[in-house]
Design a protein around this nucleic acid. Structure first.
Length: 669
RNA sequence: GCCGACGUAGCUCAGCGGUAGAGCAGCUGAUUCGUAAUCAGCAGGUCGGCGGUUCAAGUCCGCCCGUCGGCUCCA
């Protein structure tokens, strides 16, 4: 929804872990794509079809740009540009592509004019006038030189810049132009043949946003106008309704309604307070990770929140990520270690990642090949100074606690360990019943000028580790998308990409190979032959961070958690005051079983108490009145399920224990 | 950080130059109730903050802070 359909690129979406045919050998680097190719979207309604949900490997060929929907949206974007230039003469153009639910166009408005959302309806009206004029779209292909001449005449500097790039860097020998009415745009097309084909009531201008030219903050800030566009009013309305419905599941909204977390400016932006309900979920996740990691041979460690600068110089993080770190605390009482004796104060940083500390744990004693693989795990809290405008509820924060671990391996063990981590992800994802996500294999891009200094320049090591990561995916039969230039600075990685209900894409989990940092720390193990060797390191976080992971869980379950995860698992509901004693007795039994239970002690009516429990999405309400008290039973009313059950207390407790222990999902009606 | 929109009670919102309102939540009382809202009362707001215009400012203007939507970055 947010990304333009880029030109000439074949988007691939792979539903990982799908029970689909093994990915053919030809998948992978042969299919390396540009780093920003389309990723489609959850098709709320009428978007470009993808198989995000169906598990079939979708390949949107270039021809998919030539759908009626695409043409319609693209042509509407030209109509919008024409309308804007009519209303605000002198407005310059950027890009104006169709997107998954409509289109946008980037503009630079002249002088003091900065249209806000109030002017959108005016632009919309002008667009409708243009559509009614029944303008024809005419295509014209010009040879490179003539094309440049034409664009110079159009006085569109950004179009010119792009045209020059197409000709000089990409070697195109001609460019195409589309004319409709008085409006001419350099554009690849295709378009509808006449504006009369455009739906007068199928589009609406949605928002005004700033956008840097070509997405680079060093460039000029343009004004982007977004629009929804569908073939007719009904589909447009469906889209708007779907967006509204999605917002009801948004973790920020549910987080407040369910009292999971709070972000207070008094504490700091991006620094969430975990309320008791949210903390219960964190504890359950930590229990789960403890169990999973213990069984897989991981060892728990615990490391401090602040550390001397030298550690991050050694790791290589400081020069690369200092902007992303909280500024240092200067300790004037201590001379800087690793300094030149010039009396500089010691600098301590809040840790932005756990790996350097884990490397120090590795280095704390002599290691033998017999110690490997050594798997060090920690739910570690880290702090990153994310940009103000980037913060987003729990999904992007400045303080977070990560399901982190570092696995030190010999070269021979690397692939198997990497695969074992993938398998662990699979177990987790099956447990949560996640389905809508895809894997992204992120590789080195030595050509990327913006990041040339980011990477360790060791082509051989990159090639070797990228091969291992790719083979691991292939051998597991996983689908994935390749993204050049998205690797970590220390090695290739596989990211697990999810979309939030408001269709933002996030990395939730990650599995990374690191060949670069262990040598910088001088990490060694003594091999079988008595020589010292440097281990590889795997960084992995299947449960990501509590913050982002829980944000996704909230949206995934719409706030209605399975019993094992629910902040309040059982609400005991006495019919009247005389049943309070019995209700409290049951609550006590549940508490002794470590079940998060409450009694509704209000004097509201039964209907009101049920409503209030249901509003809190508590998985089970136990109704206890005369019948139950006499028979020693409870009446179980599950969230979202009409059919009630009456059970003895003992039977209920047994069933509940099993359900929680097995972390079962119980489907609503 | 940048561009735009928006900030009224714990929550959802009305009021848009002339004495701050509603519903829900909260508290008190009555009610003791069998499956998604019992009734009544009370309390709750320097209308985000600071300046300005005006006889008079939630209401108009400016700056700041915050929230949301984008751009960028990332777990």
């Amino acid at each position: 929804m947010f990304r333009p359909v880029a030109c000439g690129l074949i988007p691939l979406l792979h539903r990982a872990f799908a029970r689909a045919p093994r990915s053919p050998r030809s998948s992978g680097v042969e299919r390396v794509l540009g780093k920003d190719e389309v990723s489609g979207s959850i098709p709320l309604v009428g978007s470009i079809p993808t198989s995000w949900r169906t598990g079939i490997m979708p390949i949107l060929e270039e021809s998919s740009r030539d759908t009626p929907l695409y043409r319609m949206r693209h042509s509407l974007s030209h109509v919008m540009a024409q309308a804007v230039q009519k209303l605000y003469p002198g407005t310059l153009l950027g890009f104006g592509p169709p997107i998954d639910d409509g289109f946008y166009y980037d503009f630079i408005f002249p002088g003091e004019v900065t249209p806000g959302e109030k002017t959108l309806s005016e632009i919309e009206e002008t667009m409708r006038e243009i559509i009614r004029e029944r303008q024809g779209f005419e295509r014209e292909d010009l040879a490179a030189g003539d094309a440049l001449e034409r664009i110079r005449g159009m006085k569109e500097p950004h179009k010119l810049e792009y045209a020059q790039e197409l000709i000089e860097k990409r070697g195109m020998d001609s460019l195409s132009f589309y004319t409709n009415g008085p409006f001419v745009d350099m554009c690849e097309g295709p378009h509808v043949d006449n504006t009369s084909k455009l739906p007068l009531d199928g589009f609406t201008l949605r928002s005004v946003a700033g956008a840097y030219w070509r997405g680079d903050e060093r460039n000029v800030m343009m004004t982007r106008i977004y629009a929804y566009a569908y073939p007719n009013r009904k589909q447009l309305r469906l889209r708007k309704q779907a967006v509204q419905k999605a917002q009801e599941r948004e973790h920020r909204k549910l987080g407040q309604e369910l009292s999971l977390f709070a972000i207070r400016d008094e504490v700091g932006r991006g620094l969430p307070l975990w309320l008791p309900n949210g903390t219960a979920i964190r504890q359950e996740l930590e229990k789960l990770a403890d169990e999973m990691e213990f069984k897989a041979g991981y060892k728990r460690v615990a490391t401090p929140h602040i550390t001397k600068a030298q550690l991050y110089r050694t790791s290589g993080h400081l020069p690369l990520y200092e902007d992303g770190m909280y500024p240092p605390m200067l300790m004037h009482e201590e001379a800087e270690s690793g300094g030149d004796g010039g009396g500089e104060p010691e600098r301590y940083y809040l840790k932005p990642m756990n790996c350097p500390h884990h490397h120090m744990v590795f280095a704390s004693e002599m290691r033998s090949y017999r110690d490997l693989p050594l798997r060090l795990a920690e739910y570690g809290s880290v702090y990153r100074f994310e940009k103000l405008g980037a913060l987003q509820g729990l999904a992007r924060v400045r303080g977070m606690t990560m399901n982190d671990a570092h696995i030190y391996t010999t070269p021979e063990q690397l692939k198997d360990e990497f695969k074992a981590v993938m398998e662990m992800h699979k177990k987790y994802y099956e447990l949560f019943e996640f389905e809508d996500y895809f894997l992204r294999l992120s590789l080195w891009d030595p050509e990327d000028p913006k990041r040339r200094n980011k990477y360790f320049d060791d082509p051989e090591a990159w090639a070797a580790t990228e091969k291992i990561a790719q083979e691991a995916l292939e051998e597991l039969g996983l689908y994935y998308k390749v993204s050049k230039g998205e690797a970590a600075f220390y090695g290739p990685k596989v990211d697990f990409q999810f979309r939030s209900v408001i269709e933002k894409e996030y990395t939730v989990s990650t599995n990374q190979i690191d060949f670069a940092v262990p040598p910088r720390f001088g990490l060694k193990y003594v091999d079988r032959d008595g020589t010292e060797k440097t281990p590889y390191c795997i960084h992995r976080a299947p449960l990501g961070t509590h913050e982002r992971f829980i944000a996704f869980l909230v949206e995934h379950y719409g706030g209605a958690f399975p019993t094992w995860l629910a902040p309040v698992q059982v609400l005991v509901l006495p019919i009247s005051e005389r049943h309070l004693g019995y209700a409290r007795k049951i609550e006590g039994l549940l508490r002794q079983d470590m079940v998060r239970a409450e009694v509704d002690e209000s004097d509201a009516t039964t209907g009101k108490k049920i409503r209030s429990g249901a509003t809190r999405k508590i998985p089970m309400i136990l109704i206890v009145g005369d019948k139950e008290e006499e028979a020693g039973t409870v009446t179980v009313r599950r969230y979202g399920i009409k059919q009630q059950e009456n059970k003895t207390i003992e039977a209920y407790l047994d069933d509940l224990r099993d359900e929680i222990k097995e972390r079962r999902h119980v489907k609503a009606d």
